[in-house]
């Protein structure tokens, strides 16, 4: 898939937090089908380069890196962190996250638009983590975002697609831009469901990082996402309320049918 002119090697976008060791993380990142790899600068004192050993491991995975502004509560904070991230990772890409409230970790739509506008002006390619509100999506596109990342469910809940109808409407309205379901995905079946709806990718972290075997779980997600994407491109059948036999019954002798 592509966002702007960047080829992204896969549709499973993976976060890098909460793995049991850097080696497990590196092994998970080596799984087929992984696209952007997100990194959070917030808690690692990036200013003094003291976490360089960890960043080097992430860079070695040879995936496009998507720094994020996780943990920011205002547009100003997010903009500052994005500027720092651009310096450290030498990339104009940023996953914009501005949290509106600490209990639900819900995105703050107003601060998002403000920060996206400013960061785009400064040359960033902003991928916003947002709610599934259609008007917000439109305003973010107006601000210059090249793709949208509506939530599946609140961060870390593993709840799956909390509002599939809203996401279907979202996909439908923004059919012309890449849309990625971000956060709340707990099981491969949920990621597959998002892909069947036509989303371009799924971004997740905890479900893989905290699995008993994170590498195997990354494979499971990658396969499910591939399946969902194949199914969407193949064209899903339309469900029907009544049974429709898949073989013609016209030629069947009447005494072979169940009594009516």
């Amino acid at each position: 898939m592509k966002v702007l002119d960047l080829d992204i090697p896969g549709r499973l976008w993976l976060g890098t937090a909460r793995y049991s060791s850097p080696m497990v993380l590196a092994d998970a990142l080596a799984v087929d089908g992984i696209g952007f790899v997100t990194v959070s600068l917030r808690r690692q004192n990036p200013g003094d380069r003291s976490g360089d050993q960890f960043w080097d491991l992430v860079k070695k995975a040879n995936k496009p890196v998507l720094p994020n502004t996780a943990g920011c509560h205002s547009a100003e904070e997010a903009i500052n962190l994005a500027l720092m991230a651009r310096e450290i990772f030498a990339t104009p890409w940023i996953k914009l996250e501005v949290i509106g409230d600490d209990y639900t970790l819900a995105p703050d739509p107003f601060a998002l638009v403000e920060a996206a506008t400013e960061l785009t002006k400064q040359g960033f390619h902003v991928l916003p983590y947002c709610t599934d509100d259609l008007i917000l999506g439109q305003k973010l596109l107006d601000a210059g975002c090249p793709a949208l990342m509506p939530w599946g469910a609140p961060i870390g809940t593993g709840g799956g697609l909390a509002n599939p109808r809203a996401l279907a409407a979202y996909r439908n309205k923004f059919h012309h831009v890449p849309c990625i379901v971000d956060a709340g995905i707990g099981a491969p079946s949920q990621a597959c469901e998002a892909m069947e709806m036509g989303f371009d990718a799924v971004l997740l972290n905890t479900a893989v990082a905290k699995a008993g075997d994170p590498v195997l779980m990354a494979k499971a997600f990658s396969n499910a996402i591939q399946a969902g994407n194949d199914a969407y491109r193949a064209g899903l059948m339309t469900p029907s309320d009544v049974a429709v036999p898949s073989t013609p019954v016209v030629g069947m002798p009447f005494w072979h049918q169940e009594p009516v």
């Binding site: 850097p22 690692q44 004192n45 003094d48 003291s50 976490g51 360089d52």
Partner: peptide, 13 residues
């Protein structure tokens, strides 16, 4: 637990 080699004083957070 922070992936950092900073040995400075504890942060407010």
């Amino acid at each position: 637990e922070l992936e950092s080699e900073d040995r400075g004083a504890m942060t407010v957070r």
